[in-house]
Design a protein around this nucleic acid. Structure first.
Lengths: 238, 238
DNA sequence: TAGTGGTCTAGACCACGGT
DNA sequence: CCGTGGTCTAGACCACTAG
């Protein structure tokens, strides 16, 4: 059911509910979810709202729609679409996995006259008491935008949650550049790499908030165990 | 103006027109484009259609919208977002650059009982008579879907144009996995790599058509000179 | 023929920005 | 205050799928 008194838009509420049912397996892979007209009755709303929620799911690649047939949970969805930069903790939480963060370095430094917090963390997941490290994540955050940010403990708390709740800043957009990088000793040790693993994937770029202000510079080194998958639509008309 | 007799949906027509004005510089970076209500009069359609076209531009990162203010052409869009897989020729054409293709290998082979055309090409651009090679591109295309495809000359013609015009198949979606790869002799020679360039970016995945049929398996090796940029929106609510 | 998603219309009310 | 984009409603017609 949707709460029409909630400030959250109906289509967002609906999107979350459908999403949960998919990741929890209530709607199974390959099977159809209720049709748009059915959902109109189920959730007591109009088709436009339903379709807006569904379009979000389609963009995430969680469902696909076929005219005349229905809306289906995607077969073999991409497992780790780590393109939701920044929000690692939140990301895993919604997949019922436990995020592990270990702070490697936390300092302040000045680049081009601007003072930044520098935060380097190893990120991973814990499954059945086995920890797998997936990435080394370095953030540079301007001190001027977030005074006293370094009073927080980043081992336990999500950086983005802190930004949202303490500073009312919501990271909304990323511009990331991908490149290969050669393994150095630190990476090899931290990510427990095998000898033959000599090159890794690096993502580097900027994160912007709701007002298009750059709030973070990021650099992420991905372990080979993580698949970096992207889905794109192909635009013939461009 | 929009052509209501055209089979193409109005919002797609509108999207194309707006897109053109942005890349041509008619709508300049940072400036506002006409408001939604203005466009309703300009294009004689309803707000829903306008908003659907605008949402496409927003997703591409070409504009952003601010409530109470307007819709603005995005400052500093990423120049080479090479995430429009397959459509290299088309892609460059729309940027007024000349695409160069050289066929390295063209053959048929059988994998898991299915016969494929295999086509390996070097792709690049020509600027002021200087050719820069940007990628090595291997396509596997099922013979059963496209009989006689290999009668075409892929040096001059766009593979995707052939698929669209001769077989009525439009590649619409890609699922791509990115990883680093070590340089081998062939890559070094073809892409004219320097000694210190030992690892490259590889994209590997599948391309699907409008009916969700897999029409191509691709593998692309990117030269260091090409920047692999992606833009993502960050979804706090996931 | 009935049901599905794809498109489009014509309204409405709201939150927000700038005057 | 007016104009902007954000959300939502209640319909309509269509193309396509399947029994």
């Amino acid at each position: 059911m949707l709460d029409k008194n909630d400030f959250t838009p109906l289509y967002i509420q609906l999107h979350r509910q459908l999403r949960l049912k998919i990741v929890n397996g209530e709607y199974k892979q390959g099977e159809a979810i209720p049709s748009e007209t059915e959902m109109m009755k189920l959730f007591d709303t109009t088709r436009g709202t339903i379709r807006k929620a569904l379009s979000l799911l389609v963009n995430e690649g969680l469902v696909h729609q076929v005219r005349g047939k229905g809306t289906f949970v995607r077969l073999s969805p991409l497992q780790y679409s780590i393109t939701n930069f920044g929000g690692f903790t939140d990301y895993l939480k919604n997949r019922n996995e436990e995020a592990i963060s270990k702070v490697l370095e936390q300092s302040r430094l000045i680049i081009d006259g601007t003072e930044y917090y520098q935060l380097t963390r190893v990120r991973g997941v814990k499954k059945e008491d086995v920890v797998s490290y997936l990435m080394i994540d370095t953030s540079l955050i301007p001190v001027s935008l977030f005074p006293d940010l370094d009073k927080n403990n980043f081992e336990n708390e999500s950086l983005y949650k802190i930004l949202r709740e303490q500073y009312r800043v919501s990271p909304t957009r990323s511009e990331i550049s991908l490149s290969p990088v050669l393994v150095d000793d630190q990476m090899r040790k931290i990510l427990e790499l095998k000898d033959e693993e000599v090159a890794l994937l690096k993502a580097e770029g900027n994160i912007y908030d709701q007002n298009n202000v750059r709030v973070e510079k990021v650099k992420i080194i991905y372990a080979p165990s993580i698949e970096f998958n992207i889905m794109t639509s192909i635009n013939a008309s461009i």
